[in-house]
Design a protein around this nucleic acid. Structure first.
Lengths: 349, 349
DNA sequence: GCCTTTTTAGGTAGCGCTACCAGAATTTGT
DNA sequence: ACAAATTCTGGTAGCGCTACCTAAAAAGGC
């Protein structure tokens, strides 16, 4: 029984703590995981030894032995976008309350990248998975199903989730906004979305826009629909193109991101009155929208709640206390603000 | 040799793959980790078996056995803030190129919370640590030092890092901006910061402001310095307070976050000309600043580069290829924009 | 062709922890 | 006070992999 690999300056083991406390390693293990199952005397001795030595347990070993990990994987298109960052924040908050940690990867909207991240996370034996995307490669689906780990999809309300889903209806939201604009009297309502290719969320929102128009009895004019790149610049570009195509346009609904804000600024630069000449509405209620002048009408999406609820679902699955629907459809609100005011905005100059 | 815990529907093990491929588990292990060390014939057989079975290796076991993990821990004040999110994004990008994954926790600016996260991450045996804060509890310092894991601090340029540091000088940056404003002819320069208490970064920036004034031969007026809460609202509040205290104020330097933007909007609401009546300058060059009307002069901070460099340092330490200074002082730029134009801004109406 | 050097494959023994069972200590019932 | 029930603690055997070493196979030297 000779020892091959010589232990050098390695970290402390339970055995070391146990020796100092004068108990068996098992008692140390139990004290750390379930203090109630150990008598007070033992518990105190162990705690003292742990503190004295500065012992940090090895959860890798623990997870391997118990077949249970404390890490949840989250895959979002990217962290740079404040929308995803907000969700991640909410998720992290809930998980940390339950002693769980968050492993994060970016998919960059690419299913193949997502698949690689899923495989890597499952190799790390995550105990749960939260995926923003609802489009996955076949192998990704197989991997997730085989791993049999709680998995929540949050980017879009899908009726066929891998496992669980928490989101809102982008269709209903977009439609509601169009109806709202119609109700205010706008008739030539433009629509700006991110590129539709490979983006179910954008497609869904556009369907909502079209449905809204139909219900209002308006015809969809191809001239009034454009795709734009994300960010402020996309909005700048889109508003200019739309006004060129149809100078009589009276409202524009920007179906993603901060494009609406970029458009507003461009209107200010060009001296186009917002509202008055053009009304502007946005999706995704970022903070900025309620601070710009004029404030921008938009859809308030329950971002934080999606984060919290999805994390909570994972937690309850792990506890075995899960009950309730596998698909949760959260509500959104139309936030009416100055940018769509009809009576001719008398905003301070 | 009876088996206690019955293997139920557990995941595949290397042994299973080895059996199918007709080789030993060791060969499977080597094929997966270092394909070059295995003959082509074996390698192909193993690869085929892995693919056929959909085998996902257990990295928990691998890391335990090899004493090497593939996870880096990142602790930031919060993910919601786009500044931190941008850094996290850059870090994730570099790490994923090297087969490393990112574990994230939020400290909420609290050293005790940070300590807990550090302990948890070390328990997960992260192979590297990136900390935004440079203020740590004593125990946190001891833990990090004892773990002997590459650790980079990125929030502030400290001369006494725990291990490594990548940042820029908040002092120099703030001073440079004040000098810039002075050079443009502004004389009553206000300063707005986040609460100074427990925030070294804010304190450092204020020192830079004071040093700048001194060099300009201006006296620091307590009336011109205020603290404000983060976000747009803080800027709104601060600009109003400053103008009330000293209506002759001619410029305001907002030393954090998006406060400058909030202030700009409030000026627009109140009809205060920016620039003209008040010039506005900001810290942290977020995208928004170059899109608002007028665009806002600010300090471009190398956020992404801090992220990339810090991740790269961890990677090179792990490879053993690390060389170079332990402290990296990245440069910043003063981005001159419309909000501080002196000649009386002739920006399109 | 035979022996030495270089590859390549396999066996064994842990990595540090926890599940499970057994045995010791303590409490309770009468 | 003694047996029975109820704690509590300890030993053993893995969890699934990899480091290390040995043995076999292939390649090279004369």
């Amino acid at each position: 029984m000779h020892q091959r690999r010589t232990r050098t300056v390695d970290a402390l083991r339970m055995e070391d703590v146990a020796a100092l406390a004068g108990v068996s390693p098992m008692t140390v293990s139990r004290t750390l995981r379930d203090p109630g199952s150990v008598s007070k005397a033992m518990r105190d001795r162990v705690q003292a030894a742990v503190n004295d030595m500065g012992y940090v347990p090895n959860r890798l070993a623990g997870s391997l032995a118990s077949q249970r990990s404390h890490v949840v994987g989250l895959i979002v298109p990217g962290l740079g976008d404040s929308l995803y960052a907000g969700m991640a924040q909410a998720i992290e908050g809930v998980l940390s309350e339950h002693g769980l940690y968050l492993l994060i990867a970016a998919s960059h909207h690419d299913p193949a990248t997502e698949e690689a991240a899923i495989a890597a996370f499952l190799a790390q034996r995550v105990c749960g998975l939260i995926l923003h995307s609802t489009r996955h490669t076949d192998r990704a689906k197989i991997l997730v199903q085989a791993a049999a780990v709680p998995t929540v999809e949050i980017g879009r309300l899908t009726q066929t989730p891998l496992d669980l889903c928490v989101s809102y209806s982008g269709f209903a939201a977009a439609k509601a906004m169009v109806m709202h604009l119609g109700g205010l009297g706008y008739r030539r309502i433009g629509f700006v979305s991110l590129p539709l290719r490979n983006n179910e969320r954008s497609v869904e929102r556009r369907r909502g826009y079209l449905a809204g128009l139909r219900e209002l009895g308006l015809t969809a004019l191809p001239n009034l629909m454009v795709e734009a790149s994300p960010g402020f610049a996309g909005g700048v570009d889109a508003v200019v193109r739309l006004v060129q195509r149809d100078p009589a346009i009276d409202a524009i609904f920007f179906a993603a991101d901060v494009m609406a804000v970029g458009a507003l600024f461009e209107c200010q630069r060009r001296g186009w009155a917002v509202p008055g000449q053009i009304a502007i509405a946005s999706f995704d209620d970022v903070d900025l929208l309620s601070h710009v002048v004029p404030t921008i009408t938009s859809l308030r999406i329950p971002r934080e709640e999606i984060g919290r609820r999805s994390a909570a679902m994972v937690v309850s699955r792990l506890n075995g206390t899960f009950s309730g629907p596998r698909i949760i459809d959260l509500k959104f609100d139309v936030m009416t603000r100055e940018s769509t005011t009809r009576a001719g905005g008398d905003i301070a100059p």
